[in-house]
Design a protein around this nucleic acid. Structure first.
Length: 568
DNA sequence: CTTCCCAGCGCG
DNA sequence: AAAGCGCGCTGGGAAG
């Protein structure tokens, strides 16, 4: 059953559709519901286990969650439309051609990333309160129904070759599930103990300073720096000032980056590095951050599904995907609960093995430690070298140690290396590349297109550099994008299992955090073992959904902890 | 004054 | 030891 939900004056219109997007014959007219009764109506209809079709999950689901309504599945027209408009699998369809023309009309596009809403973790309002992302144009049921039908039409035109249609369909389902999970995780929040955070800050920085002042330990380091660099008014937060002061003291660095500063043995370097470290903590995750982002023991960031071209998620506000190790001690399970932190080990190299079907590398990937396996096969047991070489292949390293190790890697694994090399060549030539489930890289930038017209030798050199840069991007895209495909399926499968546990009456865990290849479940003590089983089963299911039955393992490492800082 | 970009660093 | 992918956020500083 398919139910289309669209905004309507003072309420919503609900319309039952068939799978291909035509109105259900028995029930062809939209039914109008007022805002006040919508949550109840939706809850009632959910018993029939429909797939909810809506313009954007973000427009509907957060308010429904606030009203206590959780749903099983949806179809997010915006996210799915973005995938279908660019996928190579659907490039030949009318849908993709029309989308090309409509790129100016950002109706079904993401809001611009630069729009940053003020910290407002509460969204208690009615269902139709403006999201704060600008005037959201209202779409009629007919517009949305037509859009859904067009997307289904495009999907039906993919053909069954190499299971491409099933793969793309899976991607759309996983992306839509991801949108629901993102809303649910934002609703739930990461358990965050403010007093533990404050203790960490006090330990590193000293007592909380008055607004606009440096904490004591930073101030002390600043005083020492000014003395050691003979610069009585130095502001070490200014790279320009700092650079001049370093040069005056004979420290000849080209940048003020940590690793370059470490080259020098000047006595000012040690306090400078300490200052930078603490200053970062204070600016990014200090008291101000705590005030803005943690309320009632929860950190509730906004996740942006589809926010990265590769299919990874982005986030908005609070730096949710950059929680530094220093403060992970503040992430703490509630009484009677545990945090289960699960991480897909060496996900990207394993995805490469599966994509390239490199049987030699698959042997190495049977080991829990893939890098150790690679090291044993071709790097004289040197794990560090094996890791640098493999990551270099995925990122497109050309110089340094990683670049030097490439020939050795190519000799041992011609298929795996050949796979990413091909993706790089395609990108250099202006082509697009595609993830396992059908998410394609964007077309070449204007810069790339312009550079093709180069005539002089100088312009040609620049054009080559631009092409190589695009090659590194597409090389990485096939791996990062397919890893994101895997993670999306993992997440969706895990959610399904946790919901099943809950509906079976078992006190189940809740997903509270997701970071590219890592999930965190906040779980009652009693169901830890079942949660772990669900996480592992979901990982196995994700592998099979993407690649079928192949002899490559995707192991997850699981930690059961009270506090996030004990997870790794 | 506001707006935008950069340098630097946090995460994967 | 320090290059090679994808992001978000901060403070400084230049441009408008």
């Amino acid at each position: 059953m398919y139910l289309l939900l669209s905004a309507h004056t003072d309420g919503a219109a609900l319309q039952e559709l068939t799978a291909d997007g035509t109105p259900a014959p028995a029930n062809p007219e939209p039914r109008l519901t007022s805002a006040g009764e919508l949550a109840g109506v939706v809850l009632g209809l959910e018993k029939r286990r429909p797939r909810w079709i809506w313009h954007r999950t973000q427009d509907w689901y957060p308010a429904l969650l606030n009203a206590g309504v959780e749903l099983e599945r949806c179809y997010d027209l915006t996210l799915c439309g973005a995938i279908l408009a660019h996928s190579e699998f659907t490039a030949h369809t009318a849908y993709a051609r029309n989308a090309e023309k409509l790129t100016q009309d950002d109706d079904l596009q993401q809001p611009p990333r630069s729009l940053q809403p003020p910290p407002q973790p509460e969204h208690q309002g009615a269902l139709f309160e403006d999201s704060g992302l600008g005037p959201a144009r209202r779409h009629s049921p007919e517009e949305l129904r037509t859009e859904y039908a067009a997307q289904q039409e495009a999907l039906s035109q993919v053909g069954t070759d190499a299971n491409r249609r099933q793969r793309l369909q899976l991607l759309l389902a996983a992306e839509s599930a991801g949108a629901m999970i993102a809303a649910e995780m934002q609703h739930t929040g990461v358990p965050w103990r403010e007093e533990l955070h404050e203790q960490i800050l006090a330990d590193y920085l000293g007592p909380r300073p008055p607004l606009g002042h440096r904490p004591a330990k930073l101030e002390a380091l600043n005083t020492e720096l000014r003395r050691l660099l003979n610069s009585p008014s130095l502001n070490p937060d200014s790279p320009q000032e700092l650079m001049r002061a370093l040069h005056r003291n004979g420290i000849e660095v080209k940048t003020t980056r940590q690793w370059e500063l470490k080259e020098s043995s000047h006595p000012a370097i040690e306090p400078l590095l300490a200052y930078k470290k603490l200053s970062r903590l204070h600016a990014a995750n200090g008291w101000a951050w705590l005030d803005a982002w943690v309320k009632n023991g929860r950190f509730q960031p906004e996740y942006v599904v589809g926010g990265v071209v590769s299919g990874r998620w982005a986030s908005r506000g609070g730096g949710a995907l950059q929680i530094p190790r220093q403060i992970r001690g503040a992430v703490h399970a509630d009484p009677g609960h545990k945090l289960i932190v699960a991480d897909a080990s060496q996900l990207e190299p394993r995805v490469l093995v599966a994509l390239a079907q490199d049987s030699k590398m698959a042997e190495a990937a049977r080991d829990k430690d893939l890098y150790a396996g690679i090291a044993a096969q071709g790097f004289g047991g040197d794990r560090a070298k094996a890791k640098i070489a493999l990551l270099g292949a995925i990122y497109g390293a050309t110089t340094g140690e990683s670049g030097r190790l490439m020939p050795q890697l190519t000799r041992t694994y011609p298929r795996a290396v050949g796979f990413v090399e091909q993706a790089a060549r395609d990108g250099e030539a202006g082509g697009t590349v595609t993830s396992r489930l059908g998410r394609s890289s964007p077309p070449p930038s204007d810069r790339w297109l312009q550079s093709q017209k180069s005539t002089t030798a100088e312009e040609q050199r620049r054009a080559d550099a631009i092409a190589r840069s695009r090659g590194r991007f597409t090389r990485n895209f096939v791996v990062q994008g397919s890893a994101a495909d895997w993670a999306a399926c993992w997440l969706a499968e895990l959610r399904r299992r946790l919901r099943a546990m809950r509906s079976a009456g078992e006190p189940a865990g809740e997903l509270v955090f997701f970071l590219h290849d890592e999930v965190m479940v906040h779980c009652p003590d009693g169901s830890v073992d079942d949660c772990i089983k669900a996480i592992e089963a979901a990982a196995a299911a994700a592998k099979e959904l993407l690649f079928g039955r192949i002899p490559v393992e995707f192991p997850v490492s699981v930690a059961v902890v009270d506090s996030y800082d004990n997870a790794k």
